[in-house]
Design a protein around this nucleic acid. Sequence first.
RNA 1: GUCCCCAUCGUCUAGUCGGCCCAGGACACCGGCCUUUCACGCCGGCGACGCGGGUUCAAAUCCCGCUGGGGACGCCA
Length: 480
Amino acid sequence: MTDVRVRIAPSPTGDPHVGTAYIALFNIAFARKHGGRFILRIEDTDQVRSTRESEEAIFEALRWLGLTWDEGPDIGGPYGPYRQSERREIYAEHAKQLVASGEAYPCFCSSETLSAMREEQMRNKLPLGYDGRCRKLTAEEARNRIAAGESHVIRLRVPAEGETIVRDRLRGDVSFQNSQVDDQVLIKADGSPTYHLANVVDDHLMQISHVIRGEEWISSTPKHVQLYRAFGWQAPEFIHLPLLRNPDKSKLSKRKNPVSINYYRRLGVLPEALVNFLGMMGYSMPDEREKFSVDELIAEFEIDRVKLSGPVFGLDKLKWLTGLYLREMSEEALLDRILGELYTRESLARFVKLLQPRIEVLGDFHQQSGFFYGPDGLGYAPEELLPKKRSAAEMLPVFRKLSEQFDALRSFTVESVDEAIKVVMEETGYKARDVFLPLRIAVTGSKASPELHETIVAIGPELCRQRIRLALEKLSSLQS
RNA sequence: GUCCCCAUCGUCUAGUCGGCCCAGGACACCGGCCUUUCACGCCGGCGACGCGGGUUCAAAUCCCGCUGGGGACGCCA
């Protein structure tokens, strides 16, 4: 095998996702097994949603898990920069090259035109996709319109006929009719590249040998294959891993499940247990052993052993595994973990201030701080979620809305939380007294707790979202 | 709707080139033992090859169809 170079390319648009860790783990296992290198590249081509905080959180979460990289934005490397926002000219250059060779063309369709087109296709039950109307523009006309300052994007010219074969290591050849691969946008109207362009250009320039990523990408791979072809490059080997699933088998999503690595960290899952657990998603050791370290995984790793059906990311086994690690530790080591992971100065600092006015002796702090930890510790009765004269049927929509709003929150501040609650009140027509108490019970498990907004912020998004979901479950149990 | 992927206990999975599998392990669940209690630990139980056709002496394992699940169809990644 040629030099193995693999990568993960997360986009810094939210909390660090367990799926990212999952893909990272398999990339690392593959790289180390074959003496290759593992690269971390930040795909921040979405300028509106990408943030530095999110990027930093991803670094931090991966490091916590012990999933470290050989080249990346923070440590550099011979193929940098490793942040796509710093590589804009490279993409522009390459796009220009494709336009010059006729492999790509400018498109002047507005997003309105495009959504109208999509609607019509929907209505007529036609396949969705760009119909290629700007393909026919002459070079001259295009040049004039660009010169006139007309807004445009650059699209890839995918052959109308024939088929594109995606060679997947685990699935074999998967073929797509070119007629259903539409002309992908390469450069957006603002001049920034799309994922597809940036991804292909970077993978080539960074000499990535194997692209190990989630199965969700498989249907855009023909576009990538076409891009490699257009550039005259050799495509890397593709290996699409199965997607982690919610208990209902849909793709793991924050709307249904905690997906943030930080949630599991706050819960007190050990990093070695989480990584171990991830290692048994779609994969198993040859001797069927279930408890193993990353090093052990690497030693035995065989990418062809990965199973293609999507594993449910279920907590039962993860907790059991954590317990296994916990129990075999020395007392000393356990103490260090509790101090190092759970009761850190940092974690306590999130809420000392909130409790300060409410305690008489230090010991009070202990029993009043319970709800800042473990998500399952809230043993309240479902009925407690109901304000006076309100039924479960009435509160259910309130919690659905709350869940929706909290999921959508980009930042957790007193202001943003307040805004979210207000939206819920407006949309459901309930007053503060009907919303605040139930919400308080849901997130703290008790009526006696500090100011709601600040408490919610202190508890943090991961735990709050999950607790609201839990409340939703309790309410529905009340109904039946 | 169109395209693509997938299909063993509730869940994670073993099941190399079809026979040793009337399907093995683990979690969860249930029962027992240990124990002043609980937990841990130990023992046991429940529990699956989606369906229908082939191929074969023989199929969970190969082929086809159906069904089911999932993903993608963005100037998001």
